[in-house]
Amino acid sequence: MKNWLIILISVSFLLFACKRESQNAGEIGAHVHLNNDVSVFKVPVKIAVAEKGNIQKKITIYGKLLPKQETKLSSQFAGRILNLTLAEGDRVIKGETIAVIQSPQAEALQRVTAEDSLHNNGQNSELVPYPIRAPFSGIVTEKYHYSGDVISAGETILKIQDDAVYYLWGRLPAVYLPDVKVGQQLKITFSDLKGKTFYSKIETVSSTVDNQTQTAQVRATLHNQQHLLKSDLFAKIDIVLQSLKNVLLVPRSAVLENSDGYFLFVKKNGKAHRKKIKPGIEKANTLEVKSGLNVGDSIIVLGNYELKEGMKVEVMH
């Protein structure tokens, strides 16, 4: 009798456990079913409005300033330098006599009588002091000798540079050669001239590509009215390849890409709708849209990666 009682209690316990497990499974199934109903869930997103604006396509290269004119001044005669008072950085004017060269013969004449001096005057061009004149206006960049020094024929005395106009030489990657043309605008900045911006246009584009660097040279001219520029300054050069006005623009984060091309999602009536687009110029975080979108469309810029057509969305504030 005792054994039968134990068996009865055990069977009752098992039946109760099975029933409870069945109820729990039903509850879990109902819960999963509710969560799978996507029509209830709203994806949080951020939006922006498609608007028209201006955009430029540009590239950045680097270059260096070099003088348009620079020369070393020397004498065709040997002799002693006289009247050379210029220092490095001093300014000279075209045609200005910056020094004279006195030949050894002329120095010897100073030791003879005045009559002999008159007798020999004009007999030899080397006896007449030879003037050194500036061929153009500019500044003295290097000084090799001083007044009183004796030099040989052809020996350099000074180097002068025209600082009114400089050439800007830049290195252009060969891949951009088809896009770069004479006349395109340049925006130029120098690390040594903080806060200063200069503008110019491309004057020449070399068709010769350096085999080692795979670059070609481009040249522009910069005028130095304020005397801020100097030779060998390194420059950052922005080349405007294309400039568009009044075109449709969207944030770059709104645009997605797959094997079918580019697309984005717009919010309409609380739902996400996918639109295939044709992109244009891209600049920083902005992209031109050539087709597939309308001005004023509410485009989804955040939360768009997991979206599917028709999903309900809710704008985050």
Rank of each mutant, 00 (worst) to 15 (best):
A78P: 00
V247Q: 09
G183W: 05
N224V: 02
R219A: 02
A220M: 02
L5N: 15
V240M: 06
Q102A: 10
M1E: 07
C18M: 11
K181P: 01
S243G: 04
G280K: 00
A78Y: 03
F41R: 08
T208K: 09
E51Q: 12
V150A: 07
V205M: 05
V150L: 09
A216S: 11
Y167N: 13
V289P: 01
G122D: 12
A284F: 11
A174H: 04
Q212I: 15
P173C: 09
S117R: 09
R252M: 12
V175A: 15
T215M: 03
D297L: 02
Y199V: 00
V315A: 05
S22I: 12
D238S: 04
L244F: 06
S117C: 11
N269C: 11
Q110S: 08
F16T: 08
Y199L: 03
W169K: 01
Y146F: 09
E115V: 07
L193T: 01
N83Y: 04
V150Y: 07
G270Q: 10
A220F: 01
K276T: 10
I160T: 04
S117A: 13
Q184G: 02
T221K: 05
G154A: 06
L229C: 01
T215F: 02
A48Q: 09
G53E: 14
Q161K: 05
V128F: 04
V315C: 05
I59R: 07
R133P: 02
S117F: 08
I139R: 02
I101W: 01
A17C: 14
D297F: 00
V92C: 03
V250G: 03
N54Y: 15
V32A: 13
V40L: 14
I299S: 03
K278N: 15
S231G: 13
